[in-house]
């Protein structure tokens, strides 16, 4: 079941990338998808369960919206800082606790933080604390915990 869903997902991605629906390409895509699936470890965690699909889509959309908002606000702040003639840089490293127990939740939180401009996860320790480099320490230190709590709420309903 894991193999089948993985092959189908990879096959669809291959068809989207090549955008070419002829018989040789279909066969090649199926072969590539099967080959990649065989390379994956047998005990790979199941990210996605078909019975949770509606909740997965809904929460995923909410999560994408939250991340998108962070990215736009961070992008504007970073662009303004770079173009400012005085360059008011207040960089530094702060610790942000993940609050998440699962490794996947921690990884996705770190991904969202690193994706938004102005924040960059440098290191993580075994307690799930993310050491984050920020361009503006003061404003990030105020906002980071709240943003992380919001992300954690959405992610834990998906993966725990």
């Amino acid at each position: 079941m894991f193999y089948l869903s993985s092959i189908i997902a990879l096959f669809i991605v291959y068809l989207m990338l090549t955008a070419n629906i002829t018989l040789p390409n279909l066969v090649l895509g199926l072969l590539v998808a099967t080959g990649i699936t065989l390379l994956m470890p047998k005990d790979a965690p199941m990210l996605f369960r078909i019975d949770r699909l509606p909740r997965f889509l809904w929460t995923g959309m909410q999560y994408a919206f939250v991340v998108f908002k962070d990215v736009v606000l961070g992008g504007i702040a970073t662009a303004r800082l770079v173009l400012d003639p005085k360059l008011p840089l207040k960089s530094g490293i702060i610790a942000i606790p993940t609050g998440s127990k699962s490794e996947l939740g921690t990884a996705i939180s770190a991904h969202a933080i690193t994706l938004s401009p102005g924040e960059l996860v440098i290191e993580m320790d075994s307690d799930g604390i993310m050491y984050t480099h920020c361009l503006d320490v003061e404003s990030t230190a105020v906002a980071a915990d709240e943003a992380q709590a919001k992300r954690h709420k959405l992610l834990s309903s998906l993966f725990d």
């Binding site: 840089l89 207040k90 960089s91 530094g92 490293i93 702060i94 610790a95 770190a110 690193t114 960059l120 996860v121 440098i122 290191e123 050491y131 480099h133 320490v137």
Partner: peptide
């Protein structure tokens, strides 16, 4: 960007004028 930053920190590249360094 995470792996470049992490490698730089482990190699001891200094931060420019840090206000704060929790790590």
């Amino acid at each position: 960007s995470h792996s470049i930053a992490s490698a730089a920190y482990k190699a001891g590249v200094p931060l420019a004028g840090p206000k704060r360094d929790d790590l």
